[in-house]
Design a binder for these strands. Structure first.
Lengths: 245, 245
DNA sequence: CGGGAAATTGATGACTTTCAAGGTGTGTGG
DNA sequence: CCACACACCTTGAAAGTCATCAATTTCCCG
């Protein structure tokens, strides 16, 4: 009976030695500041697949960084209609949604077994006063969140369904590239259901677009693995305001 | 030759005596803090209709509060497709979009002659350190911005066009009510073009929905003046996930 | 007062959803 | 370890929603 060898048993490590420190909160901090930040970070959160990091209306307990795994945030209205807002990958920060009222305005659900680093609410304000680098980085992360929302709004409001998927794949490609991974071959961390909801279309529509793009030799998709065969065509598709090439 | 008597000639007044101080940045500040804030605020910005408070890629010069008038923010992609992101009414804050890169990621255009109060970038960080109340209020305002984006995403991603308009009208109704105005009769500060774009639909579609809702005695619309005749029906429409009543 | 932008209305067609069925992979319990 | 159940994904056909094109009216600004 040995313990499982998945990420859930991973040992907590310091921000300094974390492979994500260039993209995560520590990115703008001095060595000195990092030590201060480190003291407050709670690395003990292990969230299992389909379980919540936090839920709507829950009182904010701080902000969170994804250490490994993946998290989706989504909002629901009174009728139960749900909209996926963002997919958070390792190094991403979440929890800003509680800044308005002090309670979370969305659900954060793990898409797979996930490790989370938490900066507790209590020490957060103090840290911001003490660490100029943290303030700067926090501003940067908040801006990233806002930019993301703006781009998704542009996509949902103005693009056709196939353009939306193309745009999404390109963004994901860039994301992986910036983290040293292949920009042509990567894994979708979410189900078709979650992705189609995020992109504001029916699951069937997403499936059909994937099939069509595969037929046109733009991408190859095997379950959740995506290979971009023709980056140029994909980019052309994402920018095709003048319908039909 | 007397000077024009429109809002553009309005005299700058103190935050303390401003009618908006309960909803604007001063809201969470002590009297002491307000004096500090006041020193840094630049109230001289007068933006004429159709002119920009700031434009995309412009280096951030601070954050802005709408004193009078109205401002729309919008983002455009490389193809010139444009998406209106938000309408900012008196008391609303804008400029957070530059938090990511230091340059603005959207355009902010005045919908009518508008007065703007500016907190310059240079003093902003210092003020945040010095004034706990300002930090708290800033957090609140940032959260409001994020919440707004989330709700718009839900609307664009999950609702039908008529549900989107109903939702928008109800939000505007609540907004005016919370500021002491009528919740049943108010003015749309934007053109049909801007509103239809914001709601992710064609102008013609918006026009048709307005006509239909008028025929059904839910609203009366005369140019930019809206009267809500049947609040219950409007709310039912906004929540009709089970299509067709 | 005139030109032109803004708004409305109608007809048509494209895109997307919905409903339905079948296929494929995964996980759990025997 | 295998089998079965179930969730996930794909594909097809039909229907609906919404966009586009076009024409007309209304209203605003110079």
């Amino acid at each position: 009976m040995r313990p499982p060898t998945n990420t859930m048993s991973q040992k907590a490590i310091s921000c300094e030695s974390c492979s994500l420190n260039a993209v995560c909160l520590p990115s703008g901090l001095t060595a000195e500041e990092l030590i201060q930040l480190e003291k407050s970070i709670d690395k003990t959160m292990k969230i299992k697949k389909k379980e919540a990091v936090f839920k709507t209306n829950q009182i904010s307990d701080g902000i969170y960084a994804v250490k490994s795994g993946a998290v989706k945030t989504s909002i629901a209205n009174s009728d139960g209609q749900e909209q996926v807002l963002e997919f958070h990958l390792p190094g991403d920060i979440l929890g800003f949604d509680a800044f308005n009222s002090g309670t979370h305005s969305c659900d954060a659900i793990a898409l797979e077994d996930t490790l989370i680093c938490k900066i507790p609410e209590a020490t957060f304000d103090d840290l911001c006063i003490a660490l100029p680098g943290l303030r700067k980085e926090l501003k940067h992360q908040l801006g990233k969140e806002i930019s993301h929302h703006q781009n998704l709004l542009l996509s949902l409001g103005q693009q056709q369904t196939d353009e939306r998927l193309a745009t999404f794949l390109l963004q994901l490609s860039l994301h992986y590239q910036s983290r040293g991974f292949s920009n042509k071959e990567f894994v979708l961390p979410m189900s078709r259901q979650d992705l189609s909801n995020y992109l504001g279309m029916a699951v069937e529509t997403l499936s059909r677009i994937i099939s069509r793009m595969t037929d046109e030799n733009i991408i190859k998709v095997e379950r959740r693995v995506v290979i971009i065969s023709d980056m140029d065509k994909l980019e052309a598709l994402a920018h095709s305001s003048c319908k039909k090439t």
